[in-house]
């Protein structure tokens, strides 16, 4: 589905200890042969993350789509392979929870958490383009919580003062979307802004479920070690839909 939306050729990379026979490969991929029309399958052997990144370096893909993990490990939100690919991928990565890939999937609702910074706006461009090509709704979620606002110039967070909500909120909503649009062209996208409060990860997961979200898009600043990426990790752990991670 993503490949169709992106009008991109699908390249399936399978990495194993050995090259399996074709029939076994299809069974492992759980794909019927017709599903591979227009796609190519590449089988590699070696360390999976390294091989996937190597392949990505060769074909310069628009997206990498992969499973978050194959076997759940306590305390880990991503498997080693997904973690390494995510940290070093040259392009956005879509992480799909195990089992999700087998169900029918359509892109109608894209949820984009936004911290109000221009950096995040700029990072979201591929997601906006994807949503527009899929004619999907872009739901931008700003979660406010106690704590310092981003220091980046041009950031727009929840207003500290709301003197008259009948004027402040429409103005703030409009301004938020305009600031996003001036950095990340929104074209004819249907954009909706939602303000939530509380723990950002919990709110995003809640909104994703409530809004029947097909894809959550997260801008990530590239640091993985604790204490960084806490929200990203929590969402990866809890969300039940695919998650696209973009480098901010």
């Amino acid at each position: 589905m993503l490949g169709e939306t992106e009008r991109a050729a699908l390249r399936i990379v399978h990495v194993g200890e050995r090259k399996p026979p074709d029939a076994e490969l299809l069974e492992r991929l759980r794909l019927a042969a017709p599903a591979l029309d227009g796609s190519t399958v590449e089988v590699r052997t070696g360390e999976p993350a390294a091989e996937i990144l190597l392949a990505a370096g060769e074909v310069k893909p628009r997206l990498i789509v992969m499973c978050t993990h194959t076997a759940a490990k306590p305390g880990k939100v991503l498997g080693n392979t997904a973690t390494n690919v995510l940290r070093h991928a040259p392009c956005p990565v879509v992480l799909v929870p195990p089992g999700h890939g087998l169900s029918a999937w359509h892109l109608h609702h894209v949820l984009v958490p936004h911290d109000g910074t221009p950096t995040t706006s700029a990072a979201l461009r591929p997601a906006a383009e994807l949503a527009e090509r899929a004619s999907a709704e872009l739901l931008v979620a700003h979660v406010t919580d106690i704590g310092a606002a981003p220091a980046e110039a041009g950031s727009l967070t929840t207003p500290r003062y709301v003197d008259q909500p009948q004027h402040e909120w429409p103005a703030w909503t409009s301004e938020f979307v305009k600031r996003l649009a001036c950095v990340c062209p929104l074209g004819h996208l249907h954009v909706r802004l939602v303000l939530a409060r509380g723990n950002p990860a919990a709110e995003i997961v809640r909104l994703a479920k409530k809004q029947s979200t097909d894809l959550v898009v997260l801008a990530w600043r590239g640091k993985w070690e604790v204490p960084h990426a806490a929200t990203l990790k929590a969402i990866l752990h809890k969300a039940r839909c695919p998650i696209m991670v973009l480098r901010a």
Binding site: G147, T157, T158
Partner: peptide
């Protein structure tokens, strides 16, 4: 307990 807030209390508490 909300001294560090950057949003109004009605937004934070509902």
């Amino acid at each position: 307990a909300f001294a560090a807030r950057t949003a109004p209390m009605d937004v934070l508490l509902g």
